[in-house]
Design a protein around this nucleic acid. Structure first.
Lengths: 363, 363
DNA sequence: CTTGCTTTTGACACCGGTGTCTCTTACAGG
DNA sequence: CCTGTAAGAGACACCGGTGTCAAAAGCAAG
């Protein structure tokens, strides 16, 4: 059966992942140029805030833009600029809430800009990780990338960004003095403050649940803990220090270990909230009352901190604010920032949040 | 003071948000065409799996592609296709863990494809919401969009996608029969099963903490609850039903109300885990032992469910699997799926997870 | 009114792919 | 062997912007 006369063959169009467009086409730079009576390059200059343009021309173009509701096509710009107007968020899913809060901060910061956010989990551990990220960055060509802990500690990743001409910001770790590439918080200091409160309340037997080895965040927290102890002239007996990996189950194990000691601690600082929840569960199970018989402090101020009972005293990490700040460091030129980034600190303030899990020792 | 002879003026280049590129340029379709001795269009056909090509030519091109390590430039394709090879995830931050789990599922599904994930929170509530999303979709031109609850219930959003030629999938709500646009889970059924277990254990006074009004997810859970009760020939006294909004604080209030009754319930089903945590806190505060004096069931299987003590029996929502499934529905043509999407269900199975917060009534 | 410079603007190629249409080739049938 | 037809491959325009460089315009000095 012959095809319709006019039909040459199956159209190649069907192959394209294209879907129909109902609403009228959007205006292009050519439409604007025609309406304003200038060349498209001039319109381009206005869009890109070129300084070599007279006010008169600029205004004429801006009016035409407004009249047509013109929005530059990001795909075309991406092709011409060899850069996509995107920020990539690279993370290794340490904690959902953390990622999402940070993400939220970044989105707050770029809300009124032309940027969008690309999320990309990476598999630390995998040996193809570096290649995967390279391919990702080469393909997506984002303006910049944000590295969340723990992968922010990977120097090779930073070097890769550097090499590919992708701006980057490392969050919560690495050299604090590199204000161009780092955002962090004063965790050590605030942990010391929190543990100091325990000492003030009269605690002398204070336990510690560590974070995973090799994590800078964990090292910071541990160092703050020791600082508080030595300030008080105390030392940490080996059996009062339990290993951990930021997981709830590690908290359970640590709790079992610490609370089974002949002379158990009267207070325990846990390197994050999840582990604190684990320790608290063990205490409940053993009939040890919190905070009467045992004070507990966590770190993160995750939702868990308020959901458990009694509500957990913890260190709030300004992760969302760090997201905002990271975006400002990364792409100040896209954000119309009032206060120049240089004026803002790149070490954000963590705070100790006191809830119901801390009291003086029983006597 | 005159400039260097060759220097014409300040270069306009400085305006562009471009950063230097160290590593050598990547090969383009032209390089491939030259190496394979064919036209670029032919290479394009191979890339796009056109059927009008002989095996011989295809192999020659594929070899050239491999030899050069050629990767098509997504920006150029986006421009020519008028579509970006992206999937947008639109959500209204109902619950960080949920969003991230879903996100993870989507990423699992698109891992080996050319797609990337764009995340975009939307502000339900705002009246500019629809316009914001329109601008976003028009600018980014993703292939498709995923709508997470509760905004998945917004018909105008779906219509907008339709209108803009953006494929879409609505998660966890809306018409279940629309297999092309919906993924959901059998929540009603599983809630009925969970509450049925309470009845089997001998509970007769069972309280209910509702979800926010107008949410389909809440309605489903409530309907499952009632189904279990009526199966057992029970009814829900008005004072046993407390309002809620999925927040911890609402759980606190509901707990206060229900547990202050002269004849308090011996078991409470909460429409989500956060509220269950709130109810549990109130029980702890009142010295009501869980599960001895009070059984509690939640919904979501969020991290909170395992972090609180005793660990919460809850309904696990297969959110990550729904993410995978949603991606397969949305972009089957990009995923090289073995089992065709039509073969898979679009109603995923929730499951009741029994932990330590449920026991028989005290008698 | 020129001249000589600087500032603004525009013409045109180009970024790296895809759509359309035409031309070439391969093969079955006469 | 010739012809008719359909499949395969290529030429060229185009997607919607930006970079380069030359031309035009503005302006102070001669």
């Amino acid at each position: 059966m012959p095809d319709q006369p006019g039909m040459h063959r199956k159209s190649e169009t069907s192959m394209a992942p294209r879907t129909r467009e109902k609403s009228g086409k959007q205006p292009t730079i050519n439409d604007v140029a025609a309406l304003a009576g200038v060349s498209k390059k001039t319109v381009s200059r206005v869009i890109n805030r070129s300084e070599f343009i007279t006010d008169k021309t600029r205004q004429a173009v801006e009016q035409a833009i407004k009249m047509l509701g013109f929005v530059p096509n990001p795909q075309a710009r991406a092709l011409a600029f060899r850069r996509n107007f995107l920020i990539a968020l690279l993370h290794d899913n340490p904690n959902a809430q953390t990622v999402l809060n940070f993400q939220q901060g970044v989105l707050d910061a770029i809300k009124d800009s032309d940027l969008a956010l690309l999320v990309r989990p990476v598999d630390r551990g995998s040996d193809r990780m570096l290649d995967d990220v390279r391919v990702f960055l080469e393909k997506q060509r984002p303006i910049g990338a944000m590295l969340l802990p723990p992968i922010s500690e990977n120097d090779e990743l930073a070097a890769l960004c550097e090499d590919l001409g992708v701006r980057y910001v490392r969050v919560g770790s690495a050299q604090l003095d590199d204000a161009k590439h780092c955002v962090s918080s004063n965790d050590r200091e605030v942990v010391a403050e929190a543990v100091g409160k325990l000492v003030e309340l009269g605690h002398r037997r204070i336990g510690f649940v560590r974070g995973p080895v090799g994590f800078r965040s964990a090292a910071e927290r541990e160092s703050g803990f020791h600082e508080a102890l030595s300030n008080a002239g105390l030392t940490l007996p080996a059996e009062y220090s339990a290993p951990g990996n930021y997981r709830y189950t590690a908290g359970i194990e640590a709790g079992e270990a610490l609370l089974s000691l002949a002379a158990p601690p009267t207070a325990i600082f846990c390197s994050n909230d999840e582990m604190a929840a684990g320790v608290m569960s063990v205490a409940h199970g053993k009939g040890i009352a919190v905070p009467t018989d045992l004070s507990i402090i966590g770190f993160d101020d995750s939702p868990t901190a308020t959901h458990i009972w009694p509500a957990l005293s913890t260190v709030r990490w300004p992760i969302r604010e760090m997201g905002v700040r990271a975006a400002r460091i990364l792409v100040p030129d896209f954000l119309d920032i009032i206060s120049r980034p240089a004026d803002e600190p790149n070490v954000m303030a963590s705070t100790f949040v006191e809830r119901q899990s801390v009291a003086g020792p029983k006597r």
